[in-house]
Each structure stands twice: as structure tokens, then as C-alpha cells.
């Protein structure tokens, strides 16, 4: 049983991790806790669903044992772009203006309002019923036999989610440590004024941060839709685990966010047999309080 929970936790954890990378980047670079980040996940998931309807008219083949094929990947690309666009639009209309007013908390509150509006608009547009990218039943493959600590069974889709997450995390790491834009993002996170002095166009870096953060959120949303279901409140339900992962990993540390996401995912999954599935969200809250008491800068954080 324990290995199975670990595996389920890692799948959930990789979704949280992808969402948390974007959240920690925008938190560090834009300097506010974006309560609308959860809705970026939801928006991405629904947009992919919309696009999928179009692409499936062209092709309905799937990759081997997976429930999806090119249409979903193309939809994922559309969702990434659209969610990035949504984030830019929100920044332009709301966050940038509130940020200039100089009251940091006004931006947080604005994001709270934007989250509510977005969530309810999605409910209005798509209704409250859960939806799925595919109705096909996936057969879980035994990775380890029952004799080994209860065994592990995972669906091909879950494996795909894990695999793509690993690739994306490696790509993000290389991007942030090697690419000029990635380094510029770290520089802006550390000190925007010095970044300006160094010749970095901070406004452009901020725009790219929104696009990358929201794009990763869209991926997380699509993955959550693929492995669980698509609902208007899916992002809201993930928001607390996302924040817990960000703070656990240390604000501004993408690798910390990944590790934090995996820890939160596994902890939630392991807690299910102890406290019941209905309390899994509370696990993220307890982790959050614990880390704030013990080490508020997080595991990899530099700043409080």
C-alpha cells in the first residue's frame, strides 16, 4: 500500500510542482502572492478542453496505451499560449496599476478579486459538472508485484505526466541557470533596480515571467484534468497546496518549489489512510504552519 500511495503522491506532487514553479517565480519577481494563480490552472484546463474539440475533428489517434494523442498536445500548446495571454492581460489591466499605487496588499487583494471573477466566469461558461479529456478507461499497469510492499500500479497517463514533468523541470533548471533570460529573471527577483542598472529591461522580464509562470500553470491544469477531472474549482482546491509548496521550497526558488510540490503531494497521499481522503487539503495547511514556525525562509529560501 505504501508504495502505491507514494506513486499517487508523486503524480499529484508533480502537478503541484508545475503550478508552484510559476507561483514562486511571480511571487519573487513581482513581489506579491497571486491568489489568481490557481485560476490559471483552471483556465488552462478548460481552454485545452475547448481546443481539443477542434483538434479531434482532425485526428483521433492516441499514443499507444495513453488516452491521448497529438490533439491533446496541440491543445496543451494552445492552453499555454492563451493562459500566458490571460496573465499578461491581467497584469496590464490590474496588477501593474495596483502595484504602481505602492500598496503591496492592494495587488494581493486585486488578485483575490480577479480569481473570484475568473472562477465564476468559467463556471458560467462551462457549468459545474466535471468534464474529462477522454472517456476511455485506462488500465493501470503493475509496475511492482503485490508481493513488494503491496505493489504499485499506475496508468500510462500518470507515467506520461511524471515523465513530462521531469523534462519540464530539467528544462526550467537549464533555462534559469544558463539562458540569459533565465539569469535576468533571477537578477530581477534579487534586485530590480540593480537589474535595470545592468541593462536589463525589467518590464520585459516581468512580461516573460507572467508568460512562463502562467504557461506552466496551464500545463499543471491540463495534467490535473487528465489524471483527475476538470472542474471550475480545481484551481482553487490546488491553491493551498501550491502556496504550501512555494513556502516550503523558499519563495523564489523554482527547484525548491518542485521539491515542495512533491513533498506536499506525497504527504497528502500518505495521510489519506490516516485521516481519510476528505482531509487531504488540511495536510497542506499543517505543513505550511509547520514550516512557518520552524524555518520561514523555506528549505532553499534566501529571504524571509
Amino acid at each position: 500500500m505504501i508504495l502505491q500511495q507514494l506513486a499517487d503522491g508523486l503524480v499529484l506532487g508533480s502537478i503541484i510542482a508545475l503550478g508552484a514553479i510559476g507561483l514562486t517565480l511571480t511571487y519573487a519577481i513581482l513581489r506579491f502572492a497571486n491568489f489568481a494563480h490557481g485560476e490559471f490552472l483552471t483556465f488552462g484546463a478548460y481552454l485545452a478542453l475547448l481546443a481539443l474539440g477542434q483538434f479531434q475533428a482532425l485526428s483521433t489517434t492516441t499514443f499507444g496505451p495513453l488516452s491521448f494523442g497529438w490533439p491533446l498536445l496541440a491543445s496543451l500548446a494552445v492552453a499555454i499560449l492563451a493562459t500566458g495571454g490571460l496573465a499578461l492581460l491581467l497584469d496590464r489591466l490590474l496588477f501593474a496599476k495596483l502595484g504602481r499605487a505602492g500598496v503591496a496588499i492592494a495587488v494581493v487583494m486585486g488578485s483575490f478579486g480577479a480569481a473570484l471573477a475568473l472562477r465564476n466566469l468559467l463556471f458560467f461558461a462551462f457549468g459545474g459538472e466535471p468534464q474529462y479529456y477522454s472517456r476511455a478507461i485506462q488500465i493501470a499497469l503493475p509496475l511492482l508485484p503485490r508481493s513488494v510492499l503491496g505493489g504499485v500500479r499506475v496508468t500510462p497517463d500518470q507515467l506520461a505526466v511524471l515523465g513530462i514533468t521531469v523534462l519540464l523541470v530539467i528544462a526550467m533548471h537549464l533555462f534559469l541557470s544558463r539562458a540569459t533570460l533565465g539569469r535576468a529573471m533571477r537578477a530581477v527577483a534579487h534586485n530590480p533596480q540593480l537589474a535595470t542598472v545592468t541593462g536589463i529591461d525589467v518590464a520585459a522580464v516581468v512580461r516573460w515571467t507572467w508568460i512562463i509562470g502562467a504557461g506552466l500553470a496551464a500545463v499543471a491544469g491540463v495534467f490535473a484534468g487528465l489524471t483527475v477531472q476538470i472542474r471550475p474549482t480545481m484551481g482553487l482546491d490546488l491553491l493551498l497546496p501550491l502556496f504550501a509548496a512555494v513556502i516550503l521550497g523558499g519563495i523564489g526558488s523554482p527547484l525548491g518549489a518542485v521539491l515542495g510540490g512533491l513533498i506536499v503531494g506525497v504527504a497528502e497521499s500518505l495521510a489519506v489512510p490516516l485521516v481519510g481522503a476528505e482531509y487531504r487539503a488540511a495536510v497542506a495547511f499543517l505543513l505550511l504552519i509547520l514550516i512557518l514556525l520552524v524555518r520561514p525562509t523555506g528549505l532553499f529560501g534566501e529571504r524571509g
Partner: peptide
């Protein structure tokens, strides 16, 4: 903003 996150939690 930590208070915002914990009260939300």
C-alpha cells in the same frame, strides 16, 4: 502576505 496565505489556509 504570509498572513494572507495562512488565513486562506
Amino acid at each position: 502576505d504570509y498572513l494572507a496565505i495562512t488565513t486562506f489556509g
